[in-house]
Nucleic acid binder design. Structure first.
Length: 810
RNA sequence: ACCCGGAUGGCGAAAUCGGUAGACGCGAGGGACUUAAAAUCCCUGGACCGCAAGGUCGUGUGGGUUCGAGUCCCACUCCGGGUACCA
């Protein structure tokens, strides 16, 4: 008796590096950028390369995107899937500060570590086209993008408030302020006024909103953008002020309530406050203004307690002719509308609260279905505008709110008191950062010529290496401490001039990176015209919904501007966008402080990258995320082990089972449909089910039965599939072998289990021909004693759903 | 407060149109193989009553529509995310 040779087990540690090397050698993942006939641009949101290394959340996102990309390739598309690094910005700089490193030295190390981890994950990325936003080859063109906006009159400079942490001696982004204190040291944040560069995104509000109608995006993402843009229809109304020529203009969405406007409120910063304030009130008003100014932006917005001061002035309500007092209060914001409101305490909760506090008159001008004109308002304002109708409003009494909005606006407009307007919440995008780690804004200030854009031929304006990159108490950029850098001759007249020392927001780096990928190796243009028109707009964009608003909105804006400037011929960058879900672990959010952060390296080491990928996709619906449970990964690994064994032991000289073949065809259809719809978890379940059927009863498996399964699993477990494909005798890549086809005839059932109910309760099931008639089914049911015993009395009704059920109502 | 999601076995979850609730996987229990264990393979797994056949209940709560509801409608509770004095 000879010792049988041990069968080869599935060994990811051996085959994964083998295929990574082979893909690199053969250029398997390279897209034919200049002559692809069926281009498909698969984009995933590029990561910020943290020093901690790749997060499973990243890998979850990338794997899902990669499966979609590989699937499209199998379907015959020429897929371009690039990746890069969002390496510039405040995250990277703060981390460098914390560990006492320099971002210019630290970032390349982080990028290298990410690169290693990403390559290991087996993504079908065309690494030739990698971008790194912190490299001069990239940010040269970020600066170019700034200049295009500047040329279009969409970049301008104005003074604006910023958050300042006196302890960290730095400007903070709004996201870095929590409840009025610095997220890092807990110190109360102050407000400073600094000159800032803005992009006029508000000019695109309407277009950004309207295009959402036809974009193929996740509905949640669309609604987040819609809310952020915040379109509201209303009117601007002007109020005469006693003793003054200046009028107060307010914005309101409820012009119908004008008869109930019993006072006006201006924002404390409103420019007319000083004009209107009477001498008697001046001290109180100034005191209030000073107190407001000292408060930081965030604290002001988080405290809901109403405060305010009377200016001493009164205005005339154009509808009633009554004199109404003018107050200032910090619940009115200068940055929205006109910075002034007409207060209608009867029908606005904030005004109601304010009026109660300061004993201002509250008048009912809208009544609900159960109210009369003189029904008292009670404890709260009445804000139901769907059911309300006007009262105490002269000629408009009895009109429903919606109708009255138009009627009152028209009436006021005719009298010269106002005009209908549309307002947007969206405000201009402040892109200045008084920081070091970002692209210097390409502007030069000259005493003679004023603000001069850096000529494109002089780009990039390189970020110099400076050891003292730390922000200081002055509130100006670290670059402003380096005269040798910022003193330059004026590009126009040659006189001594100085550079802008602020850098631009990280979000600008990422607002155009998708345009760069196809042309990443070009140093003469930001993006090549031919390649751009071949590959863009992006066919599939997958990313986190945390970027639903800022990144996606800024990208759309920049794309629109590029179109208007004539650089591209499309205005929406992402034809299809899907948001993936979030991964939690053992029921809890992952965080460093909890110590439950997953290190992908450890899992890939133990189980293999393919099993890890597949588990991430199996643990829950991709668009909802899921719970990472350490024990769960063994299930997908066992599936791969068994599939491996079936491929290894498959033969060509055993009978093919018709039932197995039918199941394989059904699985091809289901996995195709589910993968296209990002239902990866159910696609994997279908493959498992199919394999279980294939192997059931310890039968000998025919090669033709298992071969399609290898193709189906390829997008999910690419190294594994390549090795199996080779074992089955192929020399090329499985990704060039196409997607298996199914025979629709194989999907049709000739016999079905018909469920029989009596009065809606399941009483049995019958194995019957699929095309059985109701009468035949009925006869079959009555012949079954277990069913017939429930059919007592007269049959009132029979519901028959072919192929599904028969319900007998007695 | 407002706007989105969500709630299904011990656990992660599945269920195109309203039509067998719990696919697939984890864990658990039992068995085979083994001197033994691991690995692997097979079987059983919603709850309750029952020896069984069988029956009753069951998708967060309370109502409703329907022959039939996890799925549709109304009211509510809890959880997650986003926005937050936006007039």
């Amino acid at each position: 008796m000879s010792e049988p040779t041990l069968p080869t087990p599935y060994a990811p540690a051996a085959i994964e590096p083998k295929w990574r090397d082979r893909w690199a050698d053969r250029g398997t993942n390279h897209a034919a950028l200049d002559h692809a006939a069926r281009p498909f641009y698969a984009l995933m949101m590029f990561p910020y390369p943290s020093a901690e290394g790749l997060h499973v959340g990243n890998l979850f996102a990338f794997t899902g995107s990669d499966i979609s990309a590989r699937f499209h390739r199998l379907l015959g598309y020429n897929v371009f899937q690039p990746l890069g690094y969002d390496a510039f910005g405040i995250h990277s700089e703060n981390y460098a500060l914390r560990i006492g490193a320099h971002p210019m030295e630290l970032t390349p190390k982080n990028v290298a570590n990410f690169q290693r981890q990403l390559e290991r994950a087996g993504l079908m990325v065309d690494w030739r086209q990698k971008v790194d936003t912190s490299r001069p080859e990239y940010y040269k063109w970020t600066q170019w993008v700034f200049l295009q906006l500047y040329r279009q009159g969409l970049a301008y400079k104005k003074a604006a408030a910023v958050n300042w942490c006196p302890s960290c001696k730095t400007v903070l982004a709004n996201e870095q302020v929590e409840g009025g204190t610095c997220e890092r040291c807990g110190t109360a944040v102050e407000q400073r006024f600094l000159e800032q560069w803005f992009f006029r995104i508000s000019a695109y509000a309407e277009r950004l909103l309207n295009n959402l109608d036809w974009l193929d995006w996740s509905p949640i993402t669309k609604s987040a953008q819609k809310n952020w843009i915040g379109r509201s229809e209303g009117a601007q109304l002007s109020f005469r002020v006693g003793g003054h020529d200046e009028m107060v203009t307010v914005f309101t969405t409820r012009p119908d309530t004008i008869f109930g406007a019993t006072y006006l409120v201006l924002a404390p910063e409103h420019p007319l406050v000083a004009t209107f304030t009477t001498d008697a009130q001046r001290e109180a008003v100034q005191g209030y203004q000073d107190a407001t100014k000292k408060q930081d932006v965030i604290a002001r917005k988080s405290s809901k307690d109403k405060t305010g001061v009377f200016t001493g002035a009164t205005a005339v309500n154009p509808a009633t002719g009554a004199n109404i007092p003018i107050w200032i209060a910090d619940y009115v914001l200068m940055e929205y509308g006109t910075g002034a409101i007409m207060a209608v305490p009867g029908h606005d909760e904030r005004d109601f609260e304010f009026a109660q506090l300061f004993n201002l008159p509250i008048v009912r001008v809208v009544a609900g279905p159960d109210d009369a004109a003189d029904t008292p308002l009670g404890e709260t304002a009445y804000t139901d505008d769907a059911q309300g109708r006007l009262v105490n409003s002269g000629a408009f009494d009895g009109q429903p709110v919606a109708e009255a909005k138009t009627a009152v606006t028209n009436w006021l407009a005719a009298g010269g008191h106002g005009t209908p307007v549309t307002n947007y919440r969206l405000h201009d995008w402040c892109i200045s950062r008084q920081r070091y780690w970002g692209p210097p804004i390409p502007i030069i200030y000259c005493d003679a010529c004023g603000t001069v854009p850096v000529p494109e031929s002089q780009l990039p304006v390189e970020l110099p290496f400076i050891p003292d990159f730390k922000p200081d108490d002055s509130g100006i950029s670290p670059l402003a401490r380096h005269e040798e850098w910022f003193r330059v001759p004026c590009p126009t007249c040659g006189a001594p001039a100085r550079r802008e020392t602020d850098v631009s927001d990280t979000f600008l780096d990422s607002a155009w990176y998708f345009l760069r990928y196809p042309s990443a190796t070009r140093d003469d243009v930001a993006f090549d015209a031919d390649r751009t028109s071949r590959w863009l707009p992006v066919d599939s964009y997958i990313g986190g919904n945390e970027h639903a608003v800022l990144h996606l909105l800024y990208s759309r804006f920049v794309t629109m501007v590029m179109k208007d400037a004539g650089h591209i011929d499309f205005e929406e960058p992402f034809t299809r966008f899907r948001a993936h879900g979030m991964i939690i672990r053992e029921g809890a959010k992952m965080s460093k402080s909890k110590g439950n952060v997953i290190n992908p390296d450890v899992y890939m080491e133990e189980w293999g990258a393919d099993a890890f990928r597949m588990y991430l996709m199996f643990l829950g619906p991709y668009e909802e995320g899921g719970d990472f449970r350490d024990q769960g990964i063994s299930g997908v690994r066992r599936f791969l082990d068994r599939l491996w064994a079936s491929v290894r032991d498959a033969r060509a000289d055993v009978p093919i089972d018709a039932g197995v073949v039918r199941q394989v065809h059904r699985t091809i259809k289901k996995v195709g449909d589910d993968t296209a719809g990002l239902s990866y978890n159910t696609a994997i379940a279908a493959m498992m089910e199919c394999l279980n059927h294939l192997r059931s009863g310890d039968r000998a498996v025919h090669r033709a039965e298992v071969l399609p399964l290898v193709q189906l699993v390829a997008a999910y477990a690419p190294h594994f599939a390549e090795e199996c494909w080779e074992m089955l005798g192929h020399t090329g890549s499985v990704f060039d072998a196409g997607w298996p086809t199914f025979d629709p005839a194989m999907l049709v059932d000739h016999e079905v289990d018909l469920v029989v109910q009596v009065n809606g309760k399941v009483r049995g099931k019958l194995r019957l021909a699929a095309d059985v008639t109701q009468d035949a089914a009925m006869a079959g049911a009555m012949a079954d004693a277990g069913i017939a015993k429930f059919v007592v009395g007269e049959i009132k009704k029979v519901i028959f759903v072919p192929k599904r059920l028969l319900n007998i109502v007695v």
